[in-house]
Computed example of a mutant assay.
Amino acid sequence: MSRRRQAVRRPMAEDPKYHSVLVTRLINTVMKWGKKSTAQRIVYGAFDQIVAKNPQINPLEVLQRAVDNAKPRIETKARRVGGATYQVPLEVPPDRQISLAMRWMVDFADARKGIAMREALAAEIMDAYQGQGNAIRKRDEVHRMAQANKAFAHFRW
């Protein structure tokens, strides 16, 4: 933990196509090696596939609900107390909830081998939107871990 002052958070710009900060965060999560145009092509292609499968739904609402479904409410954090390390359950800050949900969706989409990333991302977003899939399973696993360690909740500070 740094003892210097905390970094100032800059406001994130909206993406050019959907004018949404959430889509910008998804693009930045997908982006590797600074290739933002490639990440935009992947995300917009995934949205196009979502619309192609269900023409009556809005991809922004699908993404918002998918992220809301995959957000963890509590997680465990390792704390050393008297030589022992305890997994202490803590509430997750709202910004980290969104970051974790998006990271899980992108990572599990990337892990789907044999299909294009835009198809895998579209499938992962739709799975999370419907309350199933790997990101939801990961969230449940994090919640179970926190529930199992609630006896150490008094160590949080």
Score class of each variant (00 low, 15 high):
A46E: 05
K138F: 03
P55A: 11
V92E: 02
D48L: 09
V30I: 10
T85K: 12
P16Y: 03
D110A: 07
S99E: 15
R41F: 04
R139G: 00
S20W: 10
H154G: 04
R65N: 12
A39N: 03
V62W: 09
L100C: 00
L63Q: 04
D95V: 14
Y86V: 00
R139T: 10
A52Q: 13
Q87K: 14
R103Q: 12
L22P: 00
L121A: 03
V30E: 09
I27R: 01
R144G: 10
M105G: 04
V92C: 03
D68Y: 11
R112H: 06
V23F: 01
R65E: 13
I74H: 12
V92I: 14
A46Q: 09
K17W: 07
R9V: 11
P89D: 05
S37V: 09
A70F: 06
K53F: 08
R156C: 01
R80V: 13
Q130I: 01
V30H: 07
D140N: 15
S37M: 11
A120R: 02
Y18K: 05
Y18R: 14
G133L: 07
A116T: 15
A39V: 01
D110Y: 03
D127Y: 09
R79H: 11
P11C: 00
Q97A: 02
R118D: 15
V67M: 06
V88H: 03
A120Q: 04
N58M: 04
P11M: 04
A148V: 14
P94K: 10
G45Y: 07
F152R: 00
K17E: 13
W157Q: 14
K17D: 05
E14W: 02
A116C: 03
A146C: 07
K35W: 02
R41V: 00
P16D: 08
G45P: 08
R139P: 02
I42Q: 07
T76M: 01
N54P: 00
Q132N: 13
A70K: 09
A70R: 10
Y44S: 09
L90Y: 12
Q87H: 10
A84P: 00
N54L: 12
V8R: 14
D15F: 01
R80K: 15
E119V: 07
A153M: 12
I74N: 11
T85W: 01
K35H: 11
K71I: 04
G131W: 10
T85Y: 06
Y18P: 02
I42L: 05
P55L: 08
R80L: 09
T76H: 01
H154V: 13
R144N: 13
R9W: 05
A109V: 00
L22K: 08
Q56W: 10
N69V: 07
G34N: 09
R112E: 13
V88S: 02
A120E: 01
P89H: 08
K36Q: 14
N28Q: 14
K113L: 11
M1R: 12
N58E: 13
V8E: 12
K77I: 15
A70V: 08
M1I: 12
D107R: 06
D15P: 04
